[in-house]
């Protein structure tokens, strides 16, 4: 436990990583407990951001010379998250048109 010192806390990689874990856990909790599909979507966005934060952090701390692969990945994540949000909302609206509901309790057609 060497990360709880205040000098250079912004320069310590572990602080970013722990923060990412906290955000990710918040995302997981959101995903697991929400009944509303949009809520689940919010959780997913949180998790994605936690991942992107990790990429940026490792990009910053893991390289002596300049290497922006992490940045590129983060950008991809952001872009794909946006795309995913678009599709998810489109599906959501389509489902809502049919069922007048966005609750996961009502959407259980895959029941075997």
């Amino acid at each position: 436990m060497n990360f709880l010192f205040f000098e250079g806390i912004s320069q310590n990689p572990n602080s970013y990583l722990i923060l990412a874990i906290i955000i990710f856990c918040a995302g997981i909790f959101t995903v697991l407990t929400r009944k509303n599909i949009i809520g689940i979507l919010l959780g997913i966005e949180l998790m994605l951001n936690a991942g992107a934060l990790n990429f940026i952090a490792f990009s910053f701390f893991r390289h002596e010379s300049a290497d922006y692969s992490g940045h590129v990945f983060a950008i991809f994540v952001i872009v794909l998250a946006a795309a995913e949000a678009v599709v998810a909302l489109a599906i959501l609206l389509a489902v809502y048109q049919q069922r007048r509901s966005v609750s996961t309790d009502d959407i259980s057609d895959l029941k075997g």
Binding site: Y16, I23, L53, S59, F60, A74, I75
Partner: peptide
């Protein structure tokens, strides 16, 4: 999180 990116020298991101 966008603010955190700035801390990590990721201005574009």
């Amino acid at each position: 999180i966008a603010g955190l990116y700035i801390f990590l020298s990721a201005d574009f991101v």
